[in-house]
Structure formats: C-alpha cells, structure tokens
Design a protein around this nucleic acid. Structure first.
Length: 271
DNA sequence: CTTTACGCCTGACGGC
DNA sequence: TGCCGTCAGGCGTAAA
C-alpha cells in the first residue's frame, strides 16, 4: 500500500512527464471514492496547465492555474502515465489526458483514494490544515516528539502514526523506525526518553529516505501499463517477518496487534 | 481533552 | 474446484 515513500516516488515519476502540459480531456469512469470525485472535473480542468506536483503528507497536490487537485492513493491506489491507446485496467477510475500520448490514470481497486478539487490554497483545506510536520522538516525532532508526548498513555507506535504528530509514518515504517531506534512499539508514548525520541526521529527519517531512494530506480515504471507502477520492494527488517530471526540479535521477531494494527518487533532489542 | 471503535471497499488467501 | 469468511489498511468521524 502506498506509504509516504511510494507517494513521493509517484510525485517524482509523474511531474517530469506532465509538468507544464495542458489538460485536453478528463474521464471519470467511477467517481465513488472515499469521498465522491469532485463534480464537473472535466469542466474545471480542461485547458488548464499543470504548474507543479507537490506532496503534503500522503496527499499529492496537482497545482493548476486556478487551483489544485488533491489526490490521495488510499490503500490500493496507483498512478501511471500511458498513451490513450493503452488498454484500460480494471479499476482505472479517473483519467486526465494531457494530449493523447500522456494520460494520467488513477487505478484504485479498493476505492479508499480521493480526488478533490480546491480553488483555494490546498494547505487550507480541512484535510490538510491540521497536519503535523513532514518527517524531513526540521521541526520534526526528538525535542518535538518528547514535548508532544508528555502525559500521553497511548502506545508510542500509535503516537508516531498520528498525522497530527508527524505525517507520513504509516504502519510499515512505524514498525521499522521503532526497531531501528530500539523502542518497543507498545511502550507508552509518555514514557519514552528525550534521547530515545531523538533516535526515533533520526531513524524514521533514515528509513523513509532509504525507501524513497530505492523508489528512484523504478521511476520508468510509470510509463508501463502492466503491474503496479513506481512501487518497490524495500528491505524491511521486521515488518511482515514474524517468526524470523532478528538480524541484530538472532531472536525471533514477534507480532502484536497494537491499536488495531499489526506491529512487528524484536522483544530483545526493543524495550 | 484523550482514546477507542468503526466504516469505507475489494482482492487475496485459508479452510472446508 | 469453488464457495465463504476473514483480513488488510489510511484516515476521517463518532462515540466513550
């Protein structure tokens, strides 16, 4: 599922293909996403030039001349750029054509994604206005996490997955960052030391950066019509590895459901 | 205020 | 082989 690295990889994949081009056609094949796709999207977009593609949290912001298209990939969404002649895949719900050779197609089998138009500054949109800092923002640091977590009893894993605390740390990378920082995922957020939060912030940034780096090698896949574009197999140390040996101590990796989410960790290395 | 539960949706997978 | 139940998961919202 798209986590922040996949979304950023998507941004980097589509921007050079579509940036500066004008929309020639829009097709909404199925507008029933998490929220209904903005009505009259075709009327709004056709003729407009795409100025930039930005990212805030896991939202992609397609900046046009008179506003922005906010796109979220949800659980199963993916974007690719193909010629109009390319066969449509099942669940290609929205298509934005920038000339016949470059059609942006949103595929989303589970339809948890989002396609919304805003004429205003996207950061003012209700979905984005209250989000915490980006993990690569200097505001995201050990002191920030320490101060923000005082008095909080929820598990540290749920704490760092809260978009009001920091954005873009989903279930996979929360497990990975906590393993690298040696912090048990179920530990109360308010009982993690300042120094360990410093390590957590650093490790979160490192693992996300490595995943984005890995994604860079698959950018060409955005032009393919088969398979999942722009995604990549990231070397994960604990996620999905229940029962396997911890690469650090050789102990067994455990799985525990924390806050309704599967969490993977090494009980020896993480306290 | 914090915390928890749930719904949205469909493909994959295990059990029978 | 095929049917069916369960699970996965980001994120907003309602409820406790």
């Amino acid at each position: 599922m798209p986590e922040l690295p996949e979304v950023e990889t998507t941004r980097r994949g589509v921007l050079p293909l579509l940036g500066g081009r004008r929309v020639s056609a829009v097709m909404v094949n199925d507008g029933r996403l998490r929220q209904p796709v903005t009505r009259d999207l075709e009327t709004i977009l056709v003729g407009q030039r795409l100025r930039d593609v930005e990212r805030r949290a896991k939202y992609l912001l397609f900046q046009f001349e008179s506003g922005a298209l906010i796109v979220h990939l949800g659980m199963s969404g993916s974007l690719r750029v193909v010629p109009a002649s390319a066969a449509k895949l099942a669940h290609d719900h929205v298509e934005i054509e920038f000339g016949a050779e470059r059609v942006l197609r949103l595929r989303d089998p589970r339809r948890f994604g989002l396609v919304l138009w805003t004429a205003d500054e996207p950061s003012k949109h209700a979905l984005l206005a209250k989000l915490g800092p980006e993990p690569f923002d200097e505001a995201f640091c050990g002191d920030y996490l320490f101060d923000k977590s005082r008095g909080r009893s929820l598990a540290v894993k749920n704490f760092i997955m809260d978009g009001h605390v920091v954005v873009g740390v989903g279930n996979i990378y929360a497990s990975e960052a906590l393993f690298r920082a040696g912090i048990h995922p179920a530990r109360a957020a308010g009982r993690v030391s300042r120094a360990r939060y410093e390590s957590l912030a650093t490790q979160a940034r490192l693992v996300l950066a490595a995943a984005i780096e890995a994604g860079g090698t698959t950018l060409r896949d955005f032009m393919r019509n088969d398979g999942e574009p722009g995604y990549f197999s990231q070397k994960l140390k604990v996620y999905g590895r229940e029962g396997e040996a911890c690469e650090s101590c050789g102990g067994l990796i455990a799985m525990q459901v924390i806050g309704q989410r599967s969490s993977f960790y090494c009980g020896k290395c993480q306290r």
